[in-house]
Simulated assay, not measured.
Amino acid sequence: KVYESISNGNFPLILGGDHSLGLGSIAGASKSIKNLGVVWIDAHGDINTDITSPTGNIHGMPLAASFGIGHEALVNVYENRVKIKEENVFHIAGRDLDEGEVELIKGSKGQFYTMDKVKKLGIKNVVKDMLNYFKNKVDAVHVSFDLDSIDSLFAPGTGTPVKDGLSVEDAKYILESLALSGMMCSLDIVELNPVLDKDNKTLDIAMYLIKNTLSKLKYGLENKLTA
């Protein structure tokens, strides 16, 4: 469905619970876009493999599988191919990383801006670095936004909340900057768990971010599709 949407000149918004859905959205987007970039905004690395994962949860593996690392059943979802180049990944807000993920990040060609780095640089400089990194490097960018990237104080309604994360305004700035850049071709919003939410705080944040991002959206894929 993501492939069909982008190929028809539309903008797919993919809503879900489990972040493993990123396997499918990236697979679809990368079939449409010749050279796809991915911005992954998440408290977790999501670059575990079946070997490194301490839990075996697939929602901790989609990013690694998308650039060709991990179990072949995940790497080859939808089509038997690597979906994205490792150097076309820009990860923001990581702060709860497993030991195996830390080792993968050390040797990675991708960009990983942990919360420590975000706090040191400031969100505007992080976004500036991100946009400059992708400029003239990719044809379009898929954005995968996990609500647990936001500080658990503000967004409790998610399966694995983590403190000391992004503020709501930080998240808004990242997403609207990508929307205004004209590079964003598709967007995941994931890991909302209403059962764990408090007074719909996380739901309200999700709706706020979606409405604001889509209201700022500028993109054109006429020259970027493989079809």
Rank of each mutant, 00 (worst) to 15 (best):
L23G: 13
G56I: 15
I189S: 05
R81V: 07
N80Y: 14
E4F: 14
I123F: 00
V168Q: 01
M184G: 11
D116M: 02
L203M: 07
D42Y: 03
E103S: 08
G22H: 09
K198L: 14
S144T: 11
P194D: 10
S108G: 14
V2I: 14
K34F: 15
I6S: 08
N132A: 04
D18P: 11
N223H: 14
L221H: 07
L63V: 02
K1F: 12
V2E: 13
V143M: 04
V102L: 10
K216W: 02
G107M: 01
I14Q: 08
L15K: 05
S66F: 05
S149N: 00
N212Q: 03
K216S: 06
D148M: 02
A65P: 13
P62D: 13
Y78C: 14
H71R: 13
L221D: 14
T49V: 06
K83L: 06
S177V: 05
L23K: 13
N200P: 00
N193Y: 11
S186W: 02
K34E: 15
P194E: 10
A73I: 15
P62L: 12
Y3L: 09
A43T: 01
V75E: 13
K85A: 14
D116E: 05
K106I: 08
G122Q: 10
S186Y: 04
S20E: 12
A206H: 01
K172Q: 04
D116G: 12
D199P: 05
H19G: 11
G17E: 07
I189Q: 06
K218R: 11
N200G: 01
L166Y: 03
K106F: 07
G68M: 12
I123K: 01
R81N: 12
D151W: 01
K216I: 01
N200V: 01
E99D: 08
L15T: 07
N125P: 02
M115E: 01
T49C: 05
I33Y: 02
I84W: 07
I6P: 09
L221A: 09
A140M: 09
D164W: 00
D151A: 02
H142K: 09
V168Y: 00
G165E: 00
L225F: 11
D116R: 04
L214E: 01
G220I: 06
M184Q: 11
K201N: 11
P194W: 03
V89I: 13
E86I: 09
V143Q: 08
I150Y: 00
G9P: 08
T55P: 14
H71K: 13
F67K: 09
N136F: 13
L178N: 07
D199F: 11
K224T: 08
A227G: 08
E222A: 12
N136D: 15
L178C: 04
A27Y: 05
N8A: 14
K1Y: 14
S149T: 00
I84F: 05
E191I: 08
F134R: 08
L147R: 04
L13Y: 07
K85V: 06
G68D: 15
A27C: 13
L166Q: 03
P12E: 12
K128P: 07
N193S: 14
A171L: 02
I69P: 03
P161N: 03
K224A: 05
F134T: 07
Y208I: 01
L104R: 15
L178T: 03
E87K: 13
K119N: 14
A171D: 02
D18L: 12
H44I: 08
I150W: 02
K1C: 10
G56F: 13
Q111W: 10
L13R: 05
